[in-house]
């Protein structure tokens, strides 16, 4: 009864068809079935945030999500967001601020950061810290991450608030 089940999940815009055991969580599915190793299993009990991915547009813990439960749904990972350019500005800011060291938390951190930038365009430093407080980073001490996100928030606001005339200049 606990045999494999056929699933069709749209991962980064591509429909992936795999038969998986019901017990497989979404991160093992992405890594082992799809070969997408960007999302990481850091704790597998929902605390560290390294496995943060998007399901139907909302960030979730991949390790607390069953692959079979996402059958028929849309999953987006760091690889997808990188290829579409959706988070290019966040990635650039993280790079320039050195908001990553070992990089293991980074895919999850960027998923949370992009969610923050979309949800709270006016967030201040304390709100940024609170928003990413479910994503563990042992390396940076968080400040560079906060700096990078703050930079992007400002830039996106300026971009969205800029007049058409100004946009033409560049």
């Amino acid at each position: 009864m606990s045999g494999k089940r056929q699933t069709a999940i749209t991962v980064n815009g591509v429909t992936e068809n795999h038969a998986v055991e019901p017990r497989m969580h979404l991160i093992d599915y992405l890594r082992e079935e799809c070969g997408l190793t960007g999302a990481h299993a850091g704790c597998e009990h929902g605390v560290c945030g390294a496995c943060t991915v998007r399901v139907d547009g909302e960030i979730v813990r991949g390790c607390l999500t069953l692959a079979v439960a996402t059958d028929g749904r849309r999953v987006d990972t760091i690889e997808g967001l990188s290829d579409t350019g959706e988070i290019a500005d966040l990635q650039k800011a993280f790079h320039e601020h050195n908001a990553l060291q070992c990089g293991f938390c980074t895919p999850g951190m960027l998923m949370a950061a992009q969610d923050l930038v979309r949800e709270m365009p006016n967030a201040g430093r304390d709100e940024i810290r609170e928003y990413i407080s479910g994503n563990y980073c042992r390396c940076t001490g968080y400040q560079a991450i906060v700096d990078a996100i703050e930079t992007v928030l400002k830039a996106r606001k300026e971009k969205s608030g800029a007049s058409p005339a100004l946009k033409v200049v560049k």
Binding site: T52, I59, V60, R61, S133
Partner: peptide, 9 residues
């Protein structure tokens, strides 16, 4: 209640 990724699910 926990964090946003948890509150989404």
């Amino acid at each position: 209640v926990a964090h946003i990724a948890i509150r989404n699910a």
